[in-house]
């Protein structure tokens, strides 16, 4: 194991003396930004899709919207996220002639992708809310959309917080593929550290620990949020 001590030394040398920590911090920042903003975009898209999917369908417009949504969901659930990243970065945006950084593409793709998954989570959440809530709102003369936004979705979100937390954790871990389009994330930073010193053992170990720590912090947050929501349910 004397060898291992040397490896740690090499790693620390690179990290501190050669200022490798800058890249790790940048990678950490990008990972967190991609996951967080992606989740927000995903929640927005997912909520809209879920609302469209539970709409009563005897008029034309909801039916058209519904088929658009199912195409969207089947595309983003049917292809690997790496493929989506490559398609957006190397095909779609060059075709459109838009110049966009790889981090921004990653944020967009992760948002669109998680939107497809969250739409199904959200649909389950909406269906779990008693249908009387919708009836109560509609009978007062509120529109479908207004009742959805003010009454049903707030209650649905409360029901799906644990599943949503799961999605966020999955998202954080999936961001490790964004280096496919050249974005600097946590994986890329430690990979570079390894390439520089030809020693991969310690950097990858450190990377794994950082991912675990991030996930532990997130699950703690989810627990706190959940407990707080439950409390307002009971004590009032």
């Amino acid at each position: 194991m004397g060898n291992f001590d040397r490896k740690i030394e090499v790693f620390l040398d690179y990290m501190i003396d050669a200022e490798g920590y800058n890249m790790v911090l940048l990678g950490l920042k990008n990972t967190v930004i991609i996951a967080c903003v992606g989740l927000l975009i995903g929640i927005l898209i997912g909520t809209v899709i879920a609302a469209v999917r539970v709409m009563p369908k005897y008029k034309l417009l909801p039916r058209v919207l519904n088929s658009i949504c199912s195409v969207y969901v089947s595309f983003f659930r049917g292809t690997p996220i790496v493929v989506q990243l490559l398609l957006f970065y190397y095909v779609l945006f060059p075709l459109l002639g838009v110049n966009i950084t790889s981090v921004n593409v990653s944020i967009l793709v992760f948002g669109l992708n998680s939107g497809a998954y969250i739409s199904e989570i959200m649909r389950g959440g909406i269906l779990s809310v008693d249908s009387g809530q919708m009836e109560g709102g509609r009978a007062m003369g509120l529109s479908f959309t207004a009742t959805m936004m003010k009454i049903v979705i707030p209650q649905a979100i409360k029901n799906i917080i644990p599943t949503l937390g799961n999605e966020f954790i999955a998202l954080i871990k999936e961001t490790s593929v964004v280096s496919f389009v050249g974005a600097t994330d946590l994986y890329k930073a430690f990979n570079t550290a390894g390439t520089n010193s030809y020693e991969f053992m310690v950097p990858y170990l450190a990377m794994a620990i950082i991912y675990i720590l991030m996930v532990m912090i997130i699950s703690l947050f989810i627990k706190i949020i959940e407990r707080r929501l439950r409390k307002s349910d009971k004590s009032m």
Partner: peptide, 18 residues
Amino acid sequence: NLHRQKIGMVFQHFNLFN
């Protein structure tokens, strides 16, 4: 929706917004 505003309704299961 416009007309429902003038027709109140009370349900068996109350349907208050939780």
